[in-house]
């Protein structure tokens, strides 16, 4: 279903492939939300996925760390199949323990932050490094404080999430995901639930991360961010990738009518 004239894969030069999605299909009941999606994310690349709501972009992102079970195709992280293993000619679901280990390598930031409200900011960040990765609590705390400093919230370490603004909560959520030292960060519309005046502070943090060379996949409606920060932009509609390429090409000089139509509405 992908448009054949557009080459799959990123625009940047030859580097290490971190994430590879091949022929990904997903249906919710009778509704086919992903109709065969291919993409490659290289190390250090920032990929922005844009498109109208219902185009399947969030589902695509959630399939990458197996929050959604997929119905066809595959996702590979560092060459390793995510969520499944090949058993003869069939894919079988991976045992939970192995899936959990794979997920530690992918940081995820949600639209609704999903901080743990019964834990302080610091506890939120060290929970998984200590509990899952078995890091020394003292070291984990130091790392957490450094990360909080980076997102500008060091003084909020002992607060509970509900005492923070949305923008602050999302910055904590980013720090929490980073604390696992992931290979790739997945952002699922990270600023969509924020008041307009709080969007900037979150995007600034994400820009800094991009400059540091973090590999990121960002589902977003922030076209300015995509144009400024992304290495590649992927436009999705109706469960397929309609157009992909360098942000200047896709956003400023789109070739496909559907991309043009979408951009004329949002820009």
């Amino acid at each position: 279903m992908t448009v054949p004239t557009i080459p799959a894969g990123p625009v940047a030069g030859k580097r290490e492939v971190v994430l590879r999605v091949t022929g990904l299909k997903k249906r919710f009941g009778p509704l086919e939300v992903l109709k065969g999606v291919d993409l490659i994310v290289e190390r250090g690349e920032v990929m922005c996925i844009i498109g109208p709501s219902g185009s399947g972009k969030s589902t695509l992102l959630r399939s990458m760390n197996h929050l959604e079970e997929i119905d066809g195709g595959r996702v590979e992280l560092d060459g390793e199949l995510v969520g499944y293993r090949l058993h003869g000619q069939k894919y079988v679901t991976l045992p939970e323990k192995l899936l959990a280990r794979q997920r530690t390598k992918m940081g995820m930031v949600f639209q609704s932050f999903n901080l743990f409200p019964h834990m302080t900011v610091l506890q939120n960040i060290i929970e998984s490094p200590v509990g899952v990765l078995k890091q020394d609590p003292k070291e984990a705390k130091e790392t957490a404080m450094a990360l909080l400093g980076k997102v500008g919230l060091a003084e909020k370490a002992q607060q509970y999430p509900r005492q923070l603004s949305g923008g602050q909560q999302q910055r904590v959520a980013i720090a929490r995901a980073l604390a696992m030292k992931p290979r790739v960060m997945l952002f699922d519309e990270p600023t969509s639930a924020l008041d307009p005046e709080l969007v900037g502070e979150v995007l600034d943090v994400m820009k800094d991360l991009a400059l540091e060379g973090l590999t990121m996949v960002v589902v977003t409606h922030e076209m300015g961010f995509a144009r400024e920060v992304a290495d590649s932009v992927l436009f999705m509609d109706g469960g397929v990738v309609v157009e992909r390429g360098h942000p200047h090409d896709v956003l400023l000089n789109p070739q496909m009518p559907r991309t043009k139509e979408f951009l004329s509405k949002v820009l």
Binding site: L67, N114, F116, H118, E127, L133
Partner: peptide
Amino acid sequence: VDQGQQEAAVALGMRTSRALRRVILPQ
């Protein structure tokens, strides 16, 4: 407890049992 809590917990590499014990049940 909001479904997002379970998702956030497993996305951080927790197994279901741990997510239940540390994240879901306390709430």
